[in-house]
Computed example of a mutant assay.
Amino acid sequence: MKKAKLLLLFILNVLFISCGSNSDKNKSEFSLSFVSSKAEFQLGETIKVVVQNPKNKKIDSTSFYFETELLGTATSTPELEIPLNFEKLGNQKINAIVFSEGTADSLQIAIKIFNNKAPEIYTYNVINTYPHDIEAYTQGLEFFKDTLYESTGQYGTSSLRKTNFETGEVLKKIELSDQYFGEGLSILNGNIYQLTWKEGEGFIYNLKDLKKTGSFNFNNSKEGWGLCNDGKKFYKSDGTEKIWILNSETLAEENFIQPTTNKSISTQLNELEWVEGKIYANTYQKDGVAIINPKNGAIEGIINFKGLRDKVKQHPQLDVLNGIAYNPNTKKLYVTGKNWNKLFEVEIVKK
Protein backbone atom coordinates (compact mmCIF):
# COMPACT_ATOMS: atom_id res chain seq x y z
CA MET A 1 0.00 0.00 0.00
CA LYS A 2 2.79 2.41 0.92
CA LYS A 3 4.71 1.65 -2.30
CA ALA A 4 1.55 2.14 -4.35
CA LYS A 5 0.92 5.52 -2.70
CA LEU A 6 4.49 6.62 -3.34
CA LEU A 7 4.20 5.54 -6.97
CA LEU A 8 0.98 7.53 -7.34
CA LEU A 9 2.64 10.55 -5.75
CA PHE A 10 5.54 10.26 -8.21
CA ILE A 11 3.20 10.03 -11.19
CA LEU A 12 1.18 13.02 -10.00
CA ASN A 13 4.31 15.06 -9.40
CA VAL A 14 5.53 14.31 -12.91
CA LEU A 15 2.20 15.37 -14.34
CA PHE A 16 1.89 18.52 -12.24
CA ILE A 17 5.46 19.59 -12.96
CA SER A 18 5.63 18.68 -16.62
CA CYS A 19 1.96 19.40 -17.48
CA GLY A 20 1.68 15.86 -18.83
CA SER A 21 1.61 15.57 -22.60
CA ASN A 22 0.95 19.30 -22.78
CA SER A 23 4.44 20.12 -21.52
CA ASP A 24 5.52 21.75 -24.76
CA LYS A 25 2.93 24.50 -24.34
CA ASN A 26 3.73 27.65 -22.42
CA LYS A 27 0.33 27.86 -20.79
CA SER A 28 -2.62 25.54 -20.37
CA GLU A 29 -5.79 26.41 -22.22
CA PHE A 30 -7.71 25.48 -19.07
CA SER A 31 -7.74 26.90 -15.57
CA LEU A 32 -9.11 25.83 -12.21
CA SER A 33 -11.31 28.02 -10.03
CA PHE A 34 -13.75 27.97 -7.13
CA VAL A 35 -17.39 28.65 -7.89
CA SER A 36 -17.47 30.97 -4.88
CA SER A 37 -15.26 34.05 -4.83
CA LYS A 38 -13.38 33.01 -1.68
CA ALA A 39 -10.41 30.68 -1.30
CA GLU A 40 -10.52 30.30 2.50
CA PHE A 41 -12.73 27.65 4.05
CA GLN A 42 -13.32 25.69 7.25
CA LEU A 43 -13.63 21.97 7.89
CA GLY A 44 -17.18 20.81 7.30
CA GLU A 45 -17.80 23.15 4.39
CA THR A 46 -18.41 21.90 0.87
CA ILE A 47 -16.57 23.63 -1.94
CA LYS A 48 -17.14 23.49 -5.66
CA VAL A 49 -14.22 23.45 -8.09
CA VAL A 50 -14.69 23.97 -11.81
CA VAL A 51 -12.44 23.79 -14.85
CA GLN A 52 -12.64 26.96 -16.93
CA ASN A 53 -12.65 26.15 -20.64
CA PRO A 54 -12.72 29.47 -22.56
CA LYS A 55 -12.11 27.86 -25.97
CA ASN A 56 -14.81 25.22 -25.40
CA LYS A 57 -12.46 22.35 -26.15
CA LYS A 58 -13.85 18.85 -25.81
CA ILE A 59 -13.01 17.47 -22.37
CA ASP A 60 -13.02 13.70 -22.02
CA SER A 61 -12.62 13.61 -18.23
CA THR A 62 -11.12 15.48 -15.30
CA SER A 63 -9.63 13.89 -12.17
CA PHE A 64 -9.39 15.98 -9.00
CA TYR A 65 -6.85 15.31 -6.23
CA PHE A 66 -6.02 16.47 -2.73
CA GLU A 67 -2.35 15.46 -2.34
CA THR A 68 -2.41 11.86 -3.66
CA GLU A 69 -6.04 11.28 -2.72
CA LEU A 70 -8.41 11.05 -5.67
CA LEU A 71 -11.39 13.23 -4.80
CA GLY A 72 -13.41 12.32 -7.85
CA THR A 73 -13.57 12.19 -11.61
CA ALA A 74 -15.92 14.28 -13.73
CA THR A 75 -16.77 13.35 -17.31
CA SER A 76 -19.35 15.51 -19.03
CA THR A 77 -19.14 18.59 -16.78
CA PRO A 78 -15.59 19.38 -15.53
CA GLU A 79 -16.56 20.36 -11.97
CA LEU A 80 -16.67 18.69 -8.58
CA GLU A 81 -18.21 19.34 -5.18
CA ILE A 82 -15.71 18.53 -2.42
CA PRO A 83 -16.80 18.14 1.22
CA LEU A 84 -13.95 19.22 3.51
CA ASN A 85 -14.30 16.42 6.03
CA PHE A 86 -10.86 15.69 7.46
CA GLU A 87 -8.33 17.13 5.06
CA LYS A 88 -5.08 18.51 6.35
CA LEU A 89 -5.41 22.10 7.42
CA GLY A 90 -3.43 25.17 6.39
CA ASN A 91 -2.19 26.21 2.96
CA GLN A 92 -3.08 23.38 0.60
CA LYS A 93 -3.61 22.77 -3.12
CA ILE A 94 -6.26 21.02 -5.12
CA ASN A 95 -4.91 19.45 -8.30
CA ALA A 96 -6.71 18.40 -11.44
CA ILE A 97 -5.70 16.48 -14.55
CA VAL A 98 -7.79 17.38 -17.60
CA PHE A 99 -7.83 14.82 -20.42
CA SER A 100 -8.79 16.51 -23.68
CA GLU A 101 -8.25 15.62 -27.32
CA GLY A 102 -5.34 13.29 -26.61
CA THR A 103 -3.55 15.59 -24.17
CA ALA A 104 -3.35 15.74 -20.39
CA ASP A 105 -3.23 19.18 -18.76
CA SER A 106 -2.38 19.55 -15.09
CA LEU A 107 -4.05 22.34 -13.13
CA GLN A 108 -3.68 23.53 -9.56
CA ILE A 109 -5.46 25.95 -7.26
CA ALA A 110 -4.45 27.11 -3.78
CA ILE A 111 -6.84 26.74 -0.88
CA LYS A 112 -6.59 27.71 2.77
CA ILE A 113 -8.38 25.36 5.17
CA PHE A 114 -9.03 26.36 8.79
CA ASN A 115 -10.41 24.29 11.64
CA ASN A 116 -14.11 24.62 12.31
CA LYS A 117 -13.72 25.02 16.07
CA ALA A 118 -11.87 27.54 18.18
CA PRO A 119 -9.23 25.97 20.47
CA GLU A 120 -10.27 25.09 24.01
CA ILE A 121 -8.49 27.32 26.53
CA TYR A 122 -6.67 25.78 29.49
CA THR A 123 -4.75 27.04 32.48
CA TYR A 124 -2.57 25.20 35.00
CA ASN A 125 -1.96 24.37 38.64
CA VAL A 126 1.55 23.78 39.96
CA ILE A 127 1.60 20.39 41.72
CA ASN A 128 5.32 20.07 42.54
CA THR A 129 8.50 22.05 42.03
CA TYR A 130 11.96 20.54 41.44
CA PRO A 131 15.46 22.01 41.00
CA HIS A 132 16.68 22.71 37.48
CA ASP A 133 20.13 23.82 36.34
CA ILE A 134 19.98 27.58 35.93
CA GLU A 135 22.80 27.32 33.35
CA ALA A 136 20.72 25.07 31.07
CA TYR A 137 19.37 26.88 28.02
CA THR A 138 16.64 24.28 27.59
CA GLN A 139 15.77 23.27 24.02
CA GLY A 140 14.47 19.71 24.32
CA LEU A 141 13.11 17.69 27.23
CA GLU A 142 11.92 14.09 27.30
CA PHE A 143 11.48 11.21 29.73
CA PHE A 144 12.60 7.66 29.20
CA LYS A 145 11.03 5.66 32.00
CA ASP A 146 11.64 7.95 34.99
CA THR A 147 14.88 9.53 33.78
CA LEU A 148 14.76 12.98 32.22
CA TYR A 149 16.92 13.76 29.19
CA GLU A 150 17.62 17.33 28.13
CA SER A 151 19.11 19.12 25.15
CA THR A 152 20.53 22.60 25.73
CA GLY A 153 21.46 25.31 23.27
CA GLN A 154 23.73 28.31 22.66
CA TYR A 155 26.94 28.16 20.64
CA GLY A 156 29.80 27.03 22.85
CA THR A 157 27.61 25.63 25.64
CA SER A 158 25.21 23.22 23.89
CA SER A 159 24.88 19.77 25.44
CA LEU A 160 22.97 16.53 25.81
CA ARG A 161 22.18 15.65 29.45
CA LYS A 162 20.88 12.74 31.46
CA THR A 163 19.37 14.07 34.68
CA ASN A 164 17.64 13.16 37.91
CA PHE A 165 14.59 15.38 37.65
CA GLU A 166 13.76 15.17 41.37
CA THR A 167 17.14 16.51 42.51
CA GLY A 168 18.20 18.43 39.40
CA GLU A 169 21.50 16.49 39.34
CA VAL A 170 23.10 16.11 35.93
CA LEU A 171 24.06 12.43 35.82
CA LYS A 172 25.90 12.62 32.51
CA LYS A 173 26.63 15.43 30.08
CA ILE A 174 27.80 15.32 26.48
CA GLU A 175 29.04 18.66 25.15
CA LEU A 176 28.53 19.59 21.50
CA SER A 177 31.28 21.17 19.44
CA ASP A 178 31.25 24.96 19.50
CA GLN A 179 29.91 25.23 15.92
CA TYR A 180 26.63 23.52 16.91
CA PHE A 181 23.57 25.01 18.60
CA GLY A 182 21.61 22.20 20.27
CA GLU A 183 17.85 22.03 19.78
CA GLY A 184 15.05 19.49 20.34
CA LEU A 185 15.51 15.83 21.22
CA SER A 186 13.46 12.65 21.17
CA ILE A 187 14.03 9.02 22.21
CA LEU A 188 13.03 6.00 20.14
CA ASN A 189 14.17 2.38 19.81
CA GLY A 190 17.12 2.70 22.18
CA ASN A 191 18.48 5.87 20.61
CA ILE A 192 18.41 9.58 21.40
CA TYR A 193 17.96 11.92 18.45
CA GLN A 194 19.10 15.52 18.88
CA LEU A 195 18.58 18.41 16.46
CA THR A 196 20.82 21.37 15.82
CA TRP A 197 19.51 24.80 14.90
CA LYS A 198 21.04 26.17 11.66
CA GLU A 199 23.59 23.48 10.92
CA GLY A 200 21.17 21.24 8.98
CA GLU A 201 22.25 18.20 10.95
CA GLY A 202 21.04 15.99 13.77
CA PHE A 203 22.90 13.56 16.02
CA ILE A 204 22.12 10.00 17.13
CA TYR A 205 23.26 8.64 20.51
CA ASN A 206 23.04 5.26 22.20
CA LEU A 207 20.57 5.65 25.05
CA LYS A 208 22.54 3.39 27.41
CA ASP A 209 25.85 5.27 27.45
CA LEU A 210 25.10 8.47 25.45
CA LYS A 211 27.81 7.59 22.94
CA LYS A 212 27.31 9.25 19.57
CA THR A 213 26.63 6.61 16.92
CA GLY A 214 25.69 8.64 13.87
CA SER A 215 24.13 11.74 12.37
CA PHE A 216 21.45 12.70 9.84
CA ASN A 217 20.76 15.65 7.57
CA PHE A 218 17.63 17.75 7.16
CA ASN A 219 16.45 17.17 3.60
CA ASN A 220 13.59 19.67 3.34
CA SER A 221 13.66 22.05 6.30
CA LYS A 222 16.44 24.57 6.79
CA GLU A 223 16.41 24.62 10.60
CA GLY A 224 15.86 22.31 13.56
CA TRP A 225 13.64 23.43 16.45
CA GLY A 226 11.57 20.82 18.28
CA LEU A 227 11.32 17.03 18.03
CA CYS A 228 8.99 14.32 19.37
CA ASN A 229 7.73 10.90 18.29
CA ASP A 230 4.61 8.74 18.48
CA GLY A 231 6.52 5.46 18.69
CA LYS A 232 6.57 5.02 14.92
CA LYS A 233 7.57 8.33 13.38
CA PHE A 234 9.07 11.67 14.36
CA TYR A 235 7.54 15.13 14.27
CA LYS A 236 9.91 18.05 13.76
CA SER A 237 9.31 21.80 13.91
CA ASP A 238 11.52 24.27 12.06
CA GLY A 239 10.11 27.70 12.96
CA THR A 240 7.84 27.87 9.91
CA GLU A 241 4.18 26.89 9.67
CA LYS A 242 5.22 23.27 9.08
CA ILE A 243 5.67 20.36 11.45
CA TRP A 244 7.56 17.77 9.43
CA ILE A 245 6.79 14.05 9.67
CA LEU A 246 10.00 12.01 9.58
CA ASN A 247 10.60 8.39 8.72
CA SER A 248 11.94 6.84 11.93
CA GLU A 249 14.49 4.70 10.07
CA THR A 250 15.85 7.07 7.45
CA LEU A 251 15.02 10.35 9.26
CA ALA A 252 13.80 11.73 5.90
CA GLU A 253 11.17 14.46 6.11
CA GLU A 254 8.41 12.75 4.14
CA ASN A 255 5.38 14.93 4.80
CA PHE A 256 4.12 17.70 7.06
CA ILE A 257 1.15 19.17 8.87
CA GLN A 258 0.41 22.84 9.47
CA PRO A 259 -0.87 23.75 12.96
CA THR A 260 -4.03 25.73 12.34
CA THR A 261 -6.85 27.24 14.40
CA ASN A 262 -10.25 28.36 13.16
CA LYS A 263 -8.68 31.69 12.13
CA SER A 264 -4.93 31.39 11.52
CA ILE A 265 -1.95 29.18 10.71
CA SER A 266 0.68 29.09 13.46
CA THR A 267 4.43 29.57 13.14
CA GLN A 268 7.33 29.74 15.61
CA LEU A 269 6.35 26.46 17.27
CA ASN A 270 9.37 25.33 19.20
CA GLU A 271 9.72 22.47 21.70
CA LEU A 272 7.47 19.49 20.92
CA GLU A 273 6.17 16.70 23.15
CA TRP A 274 3.96 13.70 22.39
CA VAL A 275 1.19 13.52 25.02
CA GLU A 276 -1.48 10.82 24.79
CA GLY A 277 -1.97 11.02 21.04
CA LYS A 278 -1.50 14.79 20.68
CA ILE A 279 1.47 17.06 20.00
CA TYR A 280 2.12 19.70 22.65
CA ALA A 281 4.09 22.63 21.21
CA ASN A 282 5.13 25.86 22.84
CA THR A 283 5.24 29.03 20.78
CA TYR A 284 8.67 30.64 20.93
CA GLN A 285 8.73 33.72 23.18
CA LYS A 286 5.11 33.15 24.23
CA ASP A 287 3.49 31.65 27.33
CA GLY A 288 1.16 29.42 25.32
CA VAL A 289 1.41 25.71 24.52
CA ALA A 290 -0.69 24.43 21.60
CA ILE A 291 -2.39 21.03 21.67
CA ILE A 292 -2.24 19.77 18.09
CA ASN A 293 -4.04 16.95 16.32
CA PRO A 294 -1.19 15.14 14.47
CA LYS A 295 -3.48 13.85 11.73
CA ASN A 296 -4.62 17.15 10.25
CA GLY A 297 -2.82 19.89 12.20
CA ALA A 298 -5.87 21.23 14.04
CA ILE A 299 -4.94 23.21 17.15
CA GLU A 300 -7.54 21.82 19.52
CA GLY A 301 -6.39 23.57 22.66
CA ILE A 302 -4.15 26.29 24.08
CA ILE A 303 -2.58 26.09 27.55
CA ASN A 304 -1.85 29.52 29.01
CA PHE A 305 1.24 29.32 31.23
CA LYS A 306 1.24 33.02 32.01
CA GLY A 307 2.82 33.74 35.39
CA LEU A 308 4.95 30.59 35.56
CA ARG A 309 8.12 32.48 34.66
CA ASP A 310 7.53 34.75 37.68
CA LYS A 311 7.94 31.74 39.98
CA VAL A 312 11.63 31.18 39.11
CA LYS A 313 14.74 33.11 40.11
CA GLN A 314 14.90 36.42 38.24
CA HIS A 315 18.34 37.07 36.72
CA PRO A 316 19.85 38.72 33.59
CA GLN A 317 20.09 35.46 31.59
CA LEU A 318 16.52 34.38 32.37
CA ASP A 319 14.70 33.54 29.14
CA VAL A 320 11.39 32.18 27.91
CA LEU A 321 9.29 29.10 28.60
CA ASN A 322 10.74 26.16 26.65
CA GLY A 323 10.71 22.56 27.75
CA ILE A 324 7.77 20.16 27.92
CA ALA A 325 8.17 16.62 29.23
CA TYR A 326 5.44 14.02 29.74
CA ASN A 327 6.09 10.88 31.75
CA PRO A 328 3.74 8.21 30.32
CA ASN A 329 4.45 5.93 33.29
CA THR A 330 3.04 8.38 35.82
CA LYS A 331 0.83 10.46 33.47
CA LYS A 332 2.51 13.61 34.79
CA LEU A 333 3.46 16.69 32.80
CA TYR A 334 6.50 18.88 33.48
CA VAL A 335 7.56 22.25 32.08
CA THR A 336 10.56 24.53 32.45
CA GLY A 337 12.31 27.29 30.51
CA LYS A 338 15.62 28.59 29.27
CA ASN A 339 17.90 29.27 32.25
CA TRP A 340 15.12 28.57 34.73
CA ASN A 341 16.18 27.26 38.14
CA LYS A 342 12.98 25.22 38.54
CA LEU A 343 11.15 22.38 36.83
CA PHE A 344 7.40 22.36 37.43
CA GLU A 345 5.03 19.43 37.58
CA VAL A 346 1.74 20.87 36.39
CA GLU A 347 -1.91 19.92 36.19
CA ILE A 348 -3.77 21.19 33.13
CA VAL A 349 -7.20 22.65 33.90
CA LYS A 350 -9.88 23.67 31.42
CA LYS A 351 -10.84 27.33 31.82
Rank of each mutant, 00 (worst) to 15 (best):
L185P: 02
W225E: 10
K93M: 07
E150G: 05
T250C: 09
L32M: 09
K242Y: 15
V50N: 04
I11C: 14
T267F: 10
L7Y: 12
E241N: 13
T260A: 02
Y149Q: 02
S37W: 00
F34G: 07
F256E: 00
K27V: 14
I299M: 11
G323N: 06
K2D: 13
S63W: 07
V98T: 11
Y235H: 02
I302P: 09
E175H: 11
N247T: 08
S158V: 04
S106C: 15
E135P: 00
T138H: 03
A74Q: 01
K145I: 08
K172T: 08
K48H: 14
K117T: 11
F218T: 06
N128R: 14
Y326K: 03
F218K: 06
E87V: 13
M1I: 13
T196I: 06
A252R: 07
D146C: 05
L251M: 15
T213A: 02
V14M: 09
G214H: 12
L251Y: 15
K198F: 09
K232P: 00
Y180Q: 02
K278C: 02
T213H: 01
E276D: 15
T147S: 11
I111G: 02
L107K: 09
L333T: 13
N293D: 15
G190R: 07
E101F: 10
T283D: 11
P328Y: 07
E142W: 01
W244S: 03
K350D: 06
S33C: 08
E300T: 13
V170Q: 04
T261L: 02
E175K: 14
I94C: 05
K263G: 00
K286H: 12
T75R: 14
F16P: 06
E120H: 08
F64M: 04
N26P: 09
Q108G: 06
E199H: 05
G184F: 05
I17S: 13
F64Q: 04
S106N: 12
S106K: 05
F165R: 03
K117I: 02
S21A: 12
C19D: 15
A118W: 00
A104C: 14
E40C: 13
Q92C: 05
D133L: 09
F344C: 04
N56Q: 12
D310E: 15
Q154W: 05
S23D: 08
Y65A: 02
D105M: 04
L32R: 02
H315Y: 05
K295R: 10
Q194R: 00
